[in-house]
Design a protein around this nucleic acid. Structure first.
Lengths: 256, 256
DNA sequence: TGTAGGTATGAATCCGACT
DNA sequence: AAGTCGGATTCATACCTAC
């Protein structure tokens, strides 16, 4: 295990199952785990992430990522395990937001409840331009986040939207499944204090947290993506991007 | 049972379980059943204490499934029944789109698969404003439709969006849960021919179908709502609103 | 700085060829 | 062999380049 302390960020190169038990309390868990999704056939799901999620001509743009080959029952059990661990690290009334796609959405809502969280709703990320349109079908142009709380809600802070419109291509992308930093910044309005992301990937949640004046704890088991995050967060801290004024105001409102 | 024939619409005043077995083949089922959603998952009543006293390995397995969840199981069985009946009335490759809210979304995806449909995705109706914004929460400003097909897709017709943005107050409402007619018109791009709505309510699906040149079969068991639909569809047929040019073009493309 | 037009791309999916 | 793999397909949107 390797640990990097960069400004208000603490980054672990390790599996979250190993690190989570050792952490102190956090205020929110905002994360984007591997979905283990894709395809009606088993072969479509267990293939390389590049061939599962990218067009033929674009395969190989990003490094592969692991942990994306569980079948539905195993995905359910695995999510329940890490969600239960995460719950034990959250303060009373703390928030969970966990991304998923249409195929795994029902499994994810089951898992967060089996993990002990109170399910509060579904948020929508409208990507505005879709994955591979097909004739005679509705486009699956959204991803979703299932969100909940540790026990009763505190009900402080701003009212947040339930649909977020951001192009998946609009910002620098370092991961096949990377989220726009501005999407994550908006979502962070749900919490103040310390944000935990057990599946950090290329670190967009962390970058958003640091830029909006929050503390961040991130865990990633892939060394290549870990290095990308370290570099991105170092750059943000070094350039004094600690406070986007707009976001900082939001943080203060949230904490007030 | 009462039956009204108005132009290309056939409207039944009856329970859909009674009427469905007697119908001929249709091309699509587009509907908005009662969600049975209120007060179903009161996890927050137990949340504060349950996470406090449970050890990591035994924490909160199925907290929401014990006790007051009979409603949800019954909803699941009921949906499976009518969805199975509906499947038997659809041509090969026919389409189902069934509205639901965030609470019943997972149950609905299970039910359409238990009913024998192939689940193809989730669509989003972004109502753009929330019923009740609450501090420190994401707004539940969306409803969803779960859609699928009877066996393999035909893959003809236009590519449709997966997110529809329409204000819930943008048009005249005849039903508490009424959908905008323009939303339904857009969604009907998924099919041509005969559209069936077993939970017709105030008839927005039927109105959209008639206005876009499709045939419609609707079923509603509440006499008050049935009369509203009869009046709305009579007015549309009488005023010769049979073809919105834009929609009619879309229909022809779909059928081509 | 603004507009117009061309190009790249997507947390897929399906089918056929192959081992 | 209750398989496996790779290529073709689809178009709205965002971004880039030229004027």
């Amino acid at each position: 295990m390797r640990v990097e302390h960069i400004g208000d960020a603490t980054l672990y190169l390790a599996d979250c199952m190993d690190v989570l038990p050792k952490l102190g309390k956090v205020d929110a868990v905002i994360t984007d785990p591997p979905y283990s999704s894709g395809g009606m056939m088993r072969g479509d799901r267990i293939g390389a992430t590049s061939s599962k999620y990218q067009s033929t001509e674009h395969r190989g743009l990003y490094p592969e990522f692991g942990g994306d080959t569980r079948d539905q029952r195993a995905y359910m059990v695995w999510c329940t395990l890490w969600l239960g661990l995460a719950l034990s690290k959250v303060t009373a009334g703390g928030i969970l937001a966990c991304f998923t796609d249409w195929r795994q959405l029902p499994t994810t809502t089951d898992a967060i409840q089996c993990g002990g969280w109170v399910w509060r709703g579904i948020g929508v990320w409208d990507k505005t331009e879709a994955a591979r349109p097909q004739k005679g079908r509705f486009r699956n142009q959204s991803e979703y986040f299932v969100w909940g709380s540790s026990g009763p809600m505190i009900d402080e802070g701003p009212c947040l939207p339930g649909v977020f419109r951001y192009s998946a291509q609009s910002e620098e992308k370092h991961h096949i499944t990377g989220k726009p930093v501005s999407l994550m910044s908006d979502m962070l309005g749900i919490c103040g204090g310390i944000v935990l992301d057990p599946f950090m990937g290329s670190g967009s949640t962390g970058l958003a947290a640091i830029k909006t004046g929050r503390k961040f704890i991130g865990i990633e088991r892939d060394p290549a993506y870990f290095e990308i995050t370290v570099a991105r967060i170092r750059a943000a801290v070094g350039q004094g991007q600690l406070f986007e004024p707009e976001r900082a105001k939001q943080v203060q409102e949230t904490l007030a």
